[in-house]
Amino acid sequence: MITCSECGTGHYPGALFCETCGAAVHPAAKAHVAAQKARRKERLVGERRPPLMAGDDRGSTQMDAKTGELRIFVPAYRQRLTIRAAVINVGRADPELGFKPELDLTPFGGLEKGVSRRHATIQWDGRGYVLIDQHSSNGTWLEGVRLAVGQAHRLPPRAAVRFGDLLVQLSTAD
């Protein structure tokens, strides 16, 4: 018999979850639930930070010194760029509106590849960069997964990101 640490019910060995209260009882199940909770917490932390828009200089001065370097590689054009900023807007420049994103994908066929003007933002949150889709028409894809609009997703050290149909490789270095 194994005992549920939450409600004290006894279970047969091999049980994954408690039949009385639903809590995880098997070490693997406990680890699974804890890991999922941690992942969600991380995402919620990102969500609470309001997406910063271009021209909004909240934070940019105080965080500049601490932000990491974001390296960008556009495979189709064999182009490498490096940007260091608290907020990196990703999109296409619109001279009429006077909008110029930090990462302007116009030179890489952004228009034909379905990149929106305000497509996504990459923000430094103190520990690393997070990627947020800004209601883009054709979506932002992190490692093949389409991101929910407005939600912050932490960028791994190396990541393949698709803005619309344009594939970009991002890597972060301290």
Partner: peptide, 22 residues
């Protein structure tokens, strides 16, 4: 044995459903 996480999720869902029915 390390049960795979897809299986853990499935058991979790079944179990929650049963607790809720209980």
């Amino acid at each position: 044995n390390e049960p795979p996480s897809a299986l853990i999720d499935a058991v979790r869902q079944m179990n929650l459903y049963r607790v809720q029915e209980q």
